[in-house]
Simulated assay, not measured.
Amino acid sequence: MSAEDLEKYETEMELALYREYRDVVHLFSHVVETERRFYLANSVDVRARQDSGEVYFEVTMEDAWVWDIYRPARFAKNVKVVTFKDVNVEELAKSDIELPKEGFRPR
């Protein structure tokens, strides 16, 4: 496989991952960014810990989706991340327009 083929493959995988993200983002309430990964989750708990003078963060998520093109399964029931770097957690804004629960019915 040439370098050009590899680059094309990775570009296609990133595009497919973005499309998956776009399709599932509405299922989640939080976005979590760490130095290594980007997550969507419905429950997030961040705790600062200290050990031998070093501060680190323990992030626990439930019902998560992981942005990673190399993971065959991106949905995870529980995720635990330990990091010495920054953690960013944002609550996703819900759309002002809610779709009917029964689904669309043409007139």
Rank of each mutant, 00 (worst) to 15 (best):
L40Y: 05
P72W: 09
V82C: 15
V32G: 03
S95F: 06
D23P: 03
A73C: 12
F104V: 12
R37T: 05
V89M: 06
V32H: 03
S2C: 07
E10F: 12
F28V: 00
Y70R: 10
V24K: 05
D86E: 09
R22H: 07
Y18E: 00
I97F: 11
F104E: 08
V89L: 02
V82K: 15
F38N: 11
V66G: 04
R19N: 04
K101M: 13
K85M: 07
Y18Q: 12
M13F: 06
N88Q: 11
Y9L: 08
K8Y: 01
R22N: 07
R107S: 14
D5L: 04
A16N: 10
S2G: 07
R19D: 01
R22L: 03
Y21E: 00
R37W: 00
N42E: 05
E35T: 03
G53C: 11
A41C: 10
K85G: 05
F38C: 06
G103M: 09
E7W: 08
K8G: 06
E33D: 04
L99W: 12
K80D: 09
N88H: 13
G53W: 10
L92D: 03
A76R: 09
T34V: 04
D5P: 00
V79F: 02
S43R: 14
F104R: 15
W67D: 02
E14A: 11
D51A: 14
V81F: 10
R105H: 14
D45N: 15
I69C: 06
A73Q: 15
S43D: 06
E54R: 15
D51M: 13
E98M: 14
N42A: 04
A64P: 01
S95T: 05
E7L: 15
E20K: 06
V44Y: 01
E10R: 15
